[in-house]
């Protein structure tokens, strides 16, 4: 106990912990620590104190440093280990600097300082290991990127489908809007005269309107109610001018169903309008009884 206390008080353990001893002195300290638990305990306590001291000086690292340092280190590490540089020929004081990085000799053992850091095969297998690690990382990375790309692709297809539907829809709406705007113009135009066509006694419920602009000769038909035409038949509009029927065109199914105002053939002059059910395509002159009629 006396013995170990004197040894501890000598300050050599601090020198050891600070890396200030020559290799033979280091070996002696390690031998002493192996022999006397009190010395080993004291040494561990000193080392822990310095760890604490170092840790207390820990700093926030400058930004970007992590990437810079790690990429350089990983690049250097991937290269085969260079033959260890000969230790700087400094005076005995720092001669053990490199010794720290080497195996600490067990007590009693001769201090052997290898001159080369690693034999060539180790370097090669290190390369192989580095290459394997890089390959695995790359494979994993490719897998991740591939699945991300697949997801993105699916989502892109879905988005494009949506966009197409939206565009088609917009076209439909625009067409409809155009029609409605046109109809609105017609309806608001003071030049148009409204001619109500009333059902004949044969078809009293039938009702339609003709809008006629004598200046522009434009004719529109606006069906309120006409029964659906039987197969092979189509409604046809006639303008009666001086008692003579003039073809004003056939009504499309939409127009006959009252879905929209339909523009008919231009008519120069008329006193009345009438609707008949003609064979599909219409006739040159009415062949069937009048379904509805109205005078201007």
């Amino acid at each position: 106990m006396e013995d170990s206390q004197t040894y501890i008080e000598s300050g050599i353990l601090e020198q050891y912990a600070l890396g200030l001893l020559a290799p033979n002195e280091r070996a002696a300290v390690e031998a002493e620590a192996a022999r006397q638990p009190a010395v080993a305990q004291e040494l561990a306590s000193i080392q822990l104190a310095f760890e604490y001291y170092a840790d207390a000086h820990a700093r926030e690292l400058p930004t970007g440093m992590r990437d810079r340092v790690l990429s350089k280190v990983l690049a250097q590490v991937a290269l085969p280990t260079p033959v260890a540089a000969a230790p700087v020929a400094s005076a005995g004081l720092r001669a053990d600097v490199d010794a720290l990085a080497r195996p600490q000799p067990a007590p009693g053992e001769a201090v052997v300082r290898p001159l080369a850091a690693a034999p060539a095969p180790a370097g090669r297998s290190r390369m192989a290991l580095a290459a394997s690690v890089a390959l695995l990382l790359s494979l994993a990375g490719n897998g991740v990127l591939y699945s991300r790309w697949q997801n993105a692709d699916h989502e892109l297809v879905a988005m494009q489908g949506n966009q197409n539907r939206l565009a088609a829809n917009t076209m439909v709406v625009e067409k409809k809007l155009g029609e409605i705007r046109q109809q609105n113009e017609v309806l608001r135009d003071a030049e148009f005269r409204f001619v109500a066509l009333a059902g004949t006694p044969d078809a009293p419920a039938d009702k339609a309107r003709v809008l006629f602009n004598a200046k522009t000769r434009r004719v529109y038909v606006d069906v309120q109610h006409l029964p659906a035409p039987p197969a092979g038949r189509q409604y046809q509009l006639w303008a009666l001018n001086n008692g003579k029927p003039v073809d004003a065109g056939v009504l499309t199914a939409d127009a006959a169903a009252g879905e929209r105002l339909e523009r008919m053939k231009d008519i120069a002059s008329a006193q009345a309008f009438a609707v008949t059910l003609e064979p599909v395509g219409g006739s040159a002159s009415p062949t069937m009884p009048i379904q509805a009629m109205g005078t201007i």
């Binding site: 840790d55 820990a58 992590r66 690690v133």
Partner: peptide, 18 residues
């Protein structure tokens, strides 16, 4: 080699401080 990154994250602040 990936352990170097872990090593860095764990010890670099203290080592850089010293």
């Amino acid at each position: 080699e990936s352990a170097l990154t872990l090593f860095y994250d764990r010890y670099a602040p203290a080592l850089f401080g010293v």
